[in-house]
Design a protein around this nucleic acid. Structure first.
Lengths: 122, 122, 122, 122
DNA sequence: GTGGTCTAGACCACC
DNA sequence: GTGGTCTAGACCACT
């Protein structure tokens, strides 16, 4: 489920986009699983269908979703492409890791956390 | 060195704050090392001293800096505890890791990256 | 060989048509070489024979193919004149060239690419 | 100036996007030149501001435009980045060139056309 | 003034 | 039914 914060500066469509992306990359939505229709999700989240549409469109552009016209929207399988996005993620990963290490966590703790994550997704 | 992006929506002071924090947590600025004065850094980056001041204040509030009045501003040492910040960082770490794993990276690759990072900081 | 993208909005028959035209104009299919039958190609590509038929008809209309009834379908030779198509191709050529030059490629690089292309076809 | 075809399958926002991109890459809009405001261009073209906004948004994502908040939208300078777009353009360039050569144009004619293009942009 | 976001409601093509 | 596009009109933050 996706929770929205209507206050605050983050646009709703970004929150929806990031929430859906999270569901996909963590395996909560399996490859080729159908997502709710634009209208359904819109009424579930109590927002306008256009806003959902915008999130779907962004995720399709990024390759996390695909559309079969007239049939619906589906989760894509993982891939190696888009080096730019991968670079951005590695920067985020490094920055978070560096600060966590600075704050006293050990590399072993973080590696263990990685393994847990991997198992959950598998 | 800190690079600023004057275009784009991110406020300049956030970019300065994050850039300085990055220098501190990666060990580029050692504990108790003196930072450039507000005016010096402002002229180096060609921006308003108030903007620098705001970044310094934020980092001092977060505990990454301390100020000795009349002497200057200095990098703090790690090992402080701010559970909220730590929680936020772990979320960022998990999110980036999950997506990188989805995109085909292995947990081993990421763990190796952690070790490299740790050595650079040590 | 022709690769089809079943996702995405482009009709299949257009993809087949463009793929075949590409084989012909690059010399992969020589003039008067026999193309696979509608049924054969349909089963190779795992799509409906009607779709192949539609692509063949379009290419025959454009002059890239000819059909001998009862004998099969054959690649035509070049040097035909369809000023409208040529105009369209020149527009595409100009547009792609302009953007590539804008992105930093040099006219020499593109001219060299033309020569390579010509040699492959010869 | 941009001409729109309201009939036909091409979405209007794509026509606007491609038209503006063409103005930028051919040098009709110089780097850092201000584009008309969303509302102005919308009324000029007699379409809804949201449609213009969508075109501007796409071009900013692609790096052909940049926005200074509250100030306006400006043409970006050429760059080398986005290898994916460059690859796509090279494919279009090759496909158009191959068919033009097949139809009887010579590599010299096309190279001369490239030089003309380059001069116009310079 | 500028761009950015959101809502409401409509129409289309495809299945 | 599905996604995709467009219009109309509103509100926001920033300069």
């Amino acid at each position: 489920m996706i929770t929205l914060n209507h206050r605050g500066p983050r646009p709703i469509y970004e929150q929806v986009r990031d929430g859906l992306r999270h569901l996909i990359v963590t395996g909560a939505l399996l490859p080729d699983e159908k997502l709710p229709s634009v209208r359904t999700l819109a009424s579930t989240l109590a927002i306008n269908p256009n806003t959902i549409q915008r999130a779907y469109e962004a995720l399709e552009r990024e390759g996390y979703l695909y559309t079969l016209s007239g049939r619906g929207t589906f989760a894509a399988a993982g891939r190696r492409s888009d080096p730019q996005r991968q670079q951005e993620l590695l920067s985020q990963f490094d920055a978070a890791a560096a600060e966590l290490l600075f704050l006293g966590m050990t590399a072993e703790e973080l590696a263990a956390r990685l393994r847990t994550r991997k198992e959950e997704q598998a």
